[in-house]
Amino acid sequence: MAEALLSLRINGESVHAAAPAHWTLLEVLRYRLDLIGSKQGCDKGDCGACTVQVDGEPVLACLTLACAAAGREVRTVEGLGWSPEASNGCHPLQDAFDRWDAAQCGFCTPGILMSAEALLRKVGRVVTRDEVREALAGNLCRCTGYTKIIDAVVDASEMLAAPRDET
């Protein structure tokens, strides 16, 4: 199987990897770069577990050809922890998911975080529950029933708008 050299930008760093031309971005992330935060669920667009951001927009890594992502800015859940909004290696969304118990098995969580982060950045203010529902409409969760996920995303948007003292 002929491998091609890929030059990608991932979480702000230039990365090079050799991979077959027909591999998806998800396969390159997980099986060449060991970035296993992005999950391989359905592998065909139904579940959103593989959600990453390309040039700031949340997309499905399982349906993105790795070579088509060359030259674009890819962001995975591993990069959330060192974003400017993060403190102690934790993005406010990750912190809120922890405080609200918004993850149970956690398989959907990386994808949900990437969709939610794009929403908070796009809206730039405290989000409504309906905005969260719409933004997460491509991310399935089989455990939580979504309520706590929505609670956590709204909470994180409040924290970003006016950080409160949690001590």
Partner: peptide, 9 residues
């Protein structure tokens, strides 16, 4: 169409 993620692609 589909979901926000798919509409972004």
């Amino acid at each position: 169409v589909a979901s926000p993620l798919i509409r972004n692609m």
